[in-house]
Amino acid sequence: MATVSLTVNGQSVTADVDPRTLLVQFLRDNLRLTGTHVGCDTSQCGACVVHLNGEAVKSCTTLAVQADAGVVTTIEGLAQGGELHPMQAAFREHHGLQCGYCTPGMIMSAVDIVNRKGPDLDEQTIRAELEGNLCRCTGYHNIVKAVAAGAQAMAEAPLQQAAE
């Protein structure tokens, strides 16, 4: 057993885990944060994307012990004060989801794209940057629209962005 201590969505957690425990298992099984999903076993689909120390990571390919002393934000931690994060609101507004299974990872990736690339994202950039996220439902058309709109909205709501 290994001890991990980290901050998840603003809360400190400490637990003894089997050293082979993946971050996604730790989130889903230990913390019951089931918004982070698992869609593959080869680090290809991005359903599991969370932020670790402010950067997007695939939590299926990260050991819980690697996140020790880190700060993790999951989809459950994105909305602040009962208000949707601008990217969440954009996905709803632009019908960027159907079954919703890829959605938490998509949104966490999208926020990371904006953090890295800024709010003015053209279609080509968004499509290229979503390389690590699979969606089987939407054909990406509305996801691309949602990310572009969400990026703009994030620029207009800098406070919320900083809250992460």
């Binding site: 944060l33 089931t34 949707l84 996905f91 919703g100 299974y101 959605t103």
Partner: peptide
């Protein structure tokens, strides 16, 4: 109409089979 179900999906509150224990 914007979808009623999206509130739970965009906030990670969807409940899929593997989320049940």
């Amino acid at each position: 109409v914007r979808r009623k179900e999206d509130q739970r999906f965009v906030t990670g509150q969807g409940r899929y089979v593997d989320d049940f224990n």
